[in-house]
């Protein structure tokens, strides 16, 4: 049985598989009509802005190829910025400029590029190189996110982001994704990022995996992962929970980053969030989703967050005995 799980054991742990996610959650709670709201990052951003949810400040939108010619003057005065395709997924096409050196731009990887390189990248985005099916796309240029100094040692390039599964408006599970050298600054677990399960009650790290195996320290920085404590946790959960009202989807993954100066900011929403968050948390989603399914409608975002923190927090779970992990098994042991 090395490396394989028995189905009965997975069921015991409450792990949701791809089929169950598709049939019982995505197709039941997510109205197809609403998908475009989250598939287009620009629309998500506008909607979030209307509802006063904090997002990275929008600096520039480029829709046409000819606008690229005047990009130099438009970017004047911006030291650092992030370039994103509106329809990109999985971090594709994202370019982060951290500063300037004379005429040249310095990227987060430390490499430099000139204006021509930047223009070509913008042109590729608009031509649809990074969008699904190659349809023409839009460029979004946003303010650079300033990494919170408390996280600096946990990430190799890139800024850690926090994925929260929000079901019917209730935050049910959370993980932080840390880029590594192997993942090339990307935050996808299957590309080699570290997934750190976060306690819904407190925002503390409870478990961490890298390439499907449990880890305790960051392979590049040697930082002890159990030391992670997300600041502004309740604000962050509230931000995620309010996304439910904003887009109307029942089962979403909210991606949030923490800015040094502005606090938690909503990056993007996902209508088909992956299942590896369960591996990162070492805990199945199903019991939590079933608990939320039993609740009535109508609670406010604040009430929902309070309920989730109580019901799914490590303290709450230990108290009621709900969920699988018992109290003494929790926490990443200190090195």
């Amino acid at each position: 049985m090395m490396g394989w799980m028995r189905p009965s054991r997975l069921r015991e742990l409450g792990v949701v598989g791809m089929n169950r996610r598709n049939i019982e959650f995505i197709s039941r709670y997510n109205d197809r009509r609403l998908y475009p709201l989250v598939d287009d990052k620009l629309r998500t951003k506008m909607l979030a802005h209307e509802h006063q949810l904090a997002t990275p400040t929008l600096r520039l939108v480029i829709r046409q190829q000819h606008e690229i010619r005047r990009i130099a003057e438009k970017l004047e005065g911006l030291q650092g910025f992030a370039v994103k395709p509106a329809h990109g997924s999985g971090g594709r096409g994202i370019l982060v400029v951290t500063g300037r050196r004379g005429e040249r731009f310095v990227r987060s990887s430390g490499r430099e590029m000139d204006l021509d390189d930047l223009s070509r990248h913008l042109s590729n985005i608009i031509a649809g190189l990074f969008s699904l099916g190659g349809t023409p796309d839009t460029v979004i240029i946003e303010d650079l996110i300033q990494i919170d100094p408390r996280f600096a040692e946990y990430s190799y390039q890139g800024i850690p982001d926090i994925r929260i599964i929000v079901f019917r408006g209730y935050p049910v599970m959370a993980m932080m994704r840390l880029a590594t050298q192997v993942s090339d600054g990307k935050a996808n677990l299957h590309q080699g990022a570290i997934g750190v399960g976060l306690d819904i009650g407190s925002g503390r790290a409870i478990h961490a995996v890298h390439f499907g195996r449990r880890v305790h320290v960051h392979p590049d920085t040697d930082a002890v992962l159990s030391g992670i404590q997300t600041p502004d946790w309740q604000t962050l959960l509230t931000l995620a929970a309010r996304c439910h009202e904003v887009v109307g989807l029942g089962y979403i993954g909210a991606d949030i980053v923490i800015d040094r100066d502005r606090g938690p900011l909503l990056l993007e929403l996902n209508a088909r969030p992956g299942l590896s968050i369960q591996v990162a948390n070492g805990c199945g989603l199903l019991p939590r989703l079933r608990q939320v399914e039993a609740l009535a409608n109508g609670a406010s975002a604040g009430e929902r967050v309070a309920w989730s923190m109580q019901a799914f927090g490590e303290a709450g779970l230990a108290e009621t005995g709900a969920g699988s992990p018992p109290a003494q098994g929790t926490g990443v042991p200190a090195a």
Partner: peptide
């Protein structure tokens, strides 16, 4: 089309789940 159980390869994908539980 109505099957909500696990896929065979998910039994491997979620193998790390065992490590946390006692």
């Amino acid at each position: 089309g109505k099957y909500t159980g696990y896929r065979l390869l998910e039994l491997r994908r979620f193998r790390a789940m065992e490590e946390r539980s006692p």
